[in-house]
């Protein structure tokens, strides 16, 4: 990824002698990574061309492109693709904006800012399955605290997690609650690494607060912003625990993301062939979307 940098660095700084021992240390780790990625992937690729239901006594047999055809010609796949992309885009965009705002609040020290920062980090450290359970408890239509709040402020009671118009937004809100702190942390660190002199200089030149943000913060923070958002993007595709604990893809299939659908077809319907084919289609989707950001990232990286 940092080809340009490193080649120059390598020639001027690396010692002349070649130690084979250096490379020996790599082997165990690389073997583990290879063993647990390449072999299973090839196996799964083969399975994706097979008809294989886990409890079918007839075992499995090749059925060519049938699994892919079934998935791509059905409406379910396109629906989950839409849901997934919508989820990823909405969460990443909203989380980024919020995180940026919160980072601006915490940029300068204030009383208790360390304590507050530590407390804000709690959601992202909480196991997603716990967050999911907690969400189900709090949004419950009978005794959930959220319903009590909405009742008090006059919005009435709602079946948040089973309502046609509320389930998906609620999932997004919970994700935002959990992961905004992650971006906040990265953005804050990025802001604090902006040299103070630059800000002072700009202020002396009579720049407004907005201009400082626009002309100094954003350009200098471009790389950290990109890294944070890319990481978040990759992780947002993974949402599973939250859906497992709350809506299980419902109501109907309105919160059925690709992750959830793969789980459903693989471990509920036990159709391993379809689930494998689905997985590859999902992987391609993730690679395309995150590829855009990764390419930008490596371009930035080379410029630095």
């Amino acid at each position: 990824m940092r080809a340009k940098d490193n080649s120059s660095e390598g020639s001027s700084r690396a010692p002349k002698r070649v130690h084979s021992g250096r490379y020996l240390a790599i082997i165990p780790g690389v073997l583990l990574l290879l063993g647990l990625s390449v072999f299973p992937s090839v196996y799964a690729l083969i399975v994706s061309f097979q008809k294989w239901i886990l409890t079918d006594p007839n075992g499995r047999h090749f059925n060519g492109l049938d699994n892919y055809k079934d998935i791509l010609l059905g409406s379910e796949f396109w629906h989950t693709l839409k849901i997934t992309l919508l989820f990823v885009i909405l969460t990443v965009v909203i989380e980024s904006l919020l995180a940026y705002g919160i980072a601006l609040i915490f940029f300068r020290p204030m009383p208790f800012h360390r304590v507050m920062r530590a407390l804000i980090l709690l959601p992202m450290l909480t196991a997603p399955i716990v967050v999911g359970m907690l969400a189900r408890f709090m949004f419950d239509s009978q005794f959930g605290i959220i319903n009590r709040f909405t009742e008090i402020i006059g919005l009435g009671r709602h079946d948040f997690l089973s309502g046609l118009n509320t389930a998906f937004p609620v999932i997004i809100i919970v994700d935002i609650w959990q992961w905004t702190p992650f971006l906040f942390l990265i953005f804050l660190a990025a802001m604090q690494s902006v040299p103070e002199e630059l800000i002072e200089a700009a202020k002396l030149d009579g720049a407004s607060k907005f201009e400082v943000i626009k002309n100094i913060f954003l350009p200098l923070m471009k790389y950290p912003l990109l890294v944070g958002i890319t990481l978040r993007l990759i992780d947002s595709f993974r949402v599973y625990d939250l859906i497992y604990a709350t809506t299980r893809g419902g109501p109907i299939n309105l919160t059925s993301t690709m992750s959830w659908s793969i789980y459903d077809s693989g471990f509920k319907v036990l159709n391993i062939g379809i689930a494998s084919a689905y997985s590859f289609l999902f992987l391609i989707t993730v690679l395309i979307v995150s590829g855009i950001f990764l390419r930008q990232l490596s371009k930035e990286n080379e410029e630095r």
Binding site: P40, Y43, R238, M258, A275
Partner: peptide, 20 residues
């Protein structure tokens, strides 16, 4: 290559890993 492994969602890995 190693970083690209980070991009792969776990649900994609779990089925082949389970089979392995």
């Amino acid at each position: 290559w190693i970083i690209s492994l980070r991009i792969v969602p776990p649900i994609v890995t779990i089925i082949p890993l389970f089979l392995l």
